[in-house]
Design a binder for these strands. Structure first.
Lengths: 226, 226
DNA sequence: ACGAGTCTTAACGGCTTCTATACGAGCCGT
DNA sequence: ACGGCTCGTATAGAAGCCGTTAAGACTCGT
């Protein structure tokens, strides 16, 4: 779940923000001073910060700079000042958005979503989705299977099937699910396709194709990768 | 240099934007209709789009959706409407920012900078600008390939393909992905383009063009650079 | 307006892969 | 023990995909 850190010293506004964001399925942390904000950013590691510039203990831009000194998380600035100088100053100092008070709650939430969506894209591709068993390794992003250090050549449909199974490793995947995912809708009756290609997969991946240890069939239901 | 595509049908406003952005060291392209905008996004590949929602030929949100269908570039929406419904609609549909007219030019430029800054972070940290294989070296920032110490001359399309593959080195890049990234949306069916240009690439880069070692084809799925 | 370089388009052959079918093995409840 | 059902295996022909080539269309600079 997305964690939002809200920084504001007005209790009423802070409360309103917390309530509204919680209602929209965000996990919310709150801070009322610049010092507390910096501390919480470091400790909680939120996915986004909503920062009111009018804080009692330090200048809002300083807080922003303090965050930007070591982190790239999106910061959405909130302020009563609407002059373009103020906006430009915040944006040039690393803010991702600038909203003037009073603001509309729906818009603010939409802007929070937009900012997190973009920053999530960045971290998305980093972790390679690799599924391992004792006998072989499936690299879903590279579309390769390695067994005993050697890449196993799979045909397109074999790969598709294995990919679906790997995506639900351990879980049971029904035949219908597999058929529609791999062949598209309308092939739900072609259970024999599955049998043929599962056999090919086992021949290539299982140590003993006749006694499957990893590509398990769940009679009457479907298949499972363990 | 950062390239920005400005989409607006009011000649005066369009001109003002172009002038101001050029003065701030942006490379600027312009479009006056939704259709022209979509075409230019695919051809020019700007780093950011400034999109006025009030276009004569199609709904601004449609244009936005048309871009988002295949590309992640930042889109900054411009509109005369200031209701929160409109803002939310644009932001939920993939807009990165929403500015209401009339707007301050300095603020707009600051917001453009903020959006490009964030999107640049994404491509910077992840992909190494230089990709090396045993046979040749790809310098993505200089757009050159070196083989045996000599620069290999590539045609624009060849380079574009190689660039996409290099950005995902080791990973499988599907044919559709390659086609939309290189030719733009609507070319997903032209698999033969890929065949022809991949052949040319291999002739120039592979030691043995008939037995590819680096530009690997994964039948039925796509290509991979190793 | 011309020419060099580039992209599109279409066709073909070779090879791999999928489909479709048939048959045997195993499991289950009666 | 037996019939019914599902699953695994084998195989031959059909279909699909890829690499290659070459010719026409196009773009650009001269």
């Amino acid at each position: 779940m997305t964690t939002v850190l809200v920084v504001d010293d007005e209790a009423a506004l802070l409360h309103a923000l917390v309530i509204n964001l919680r209602a929209r399925d965000f996990k919310v942390e709150a801070a009322a001073t610049g010092r507390a904000a910096l501390e919480k950013v470091a400790r909680v590691r939120p996915d986004i910060v909503i920062l009111d510039l009018g804080l009692p203990d330090m200048d809002g831009i300083e807080v922003l700079a303090g965050i930007r000194g070591w982190s790239d998380i999106p910061v959405l600035v909130l302020s009563a000042r609407s002059t373009s100088e103020e906006k430009v100053r915040a944006l040039e100092n690393g803010a991702d958005d600038y909203i003037t008070k009073p603001f509309d709650m729906a818009e603010l939430v939409a802007r929070v979503r937009a900012a997190t969506r973009r920053s999530a894209m960045r971290t998305a591709g980093i972790t390679d989705p690799i599924v391992t068993t004792e006998a072989f390794v499936i690299d879903r992003s590279a579309a390769t299977v390695t067994r005993d250090g050697k890449v196993v050549r799979l045909t397109p449909t074999e790969w598709h099937i294995l990919d679906v199974l790997a995506a639900n490793r351990g879980k049971l995947v029904s035949q219908q699910q597999l058929l529609t995912q791999v062949w598209g809708p309308g092939f739900e009756r072609q259970g024999n396709y599955l049998r043929v290609h599962m056999a090919a997969l086992r021949r290539k991946l299982e140590p003993e194709a006749s006694r499957p240890q990893y590509l398990i069939t769940e009679p009457g239901l479907g298949y499972r990768l363990v």
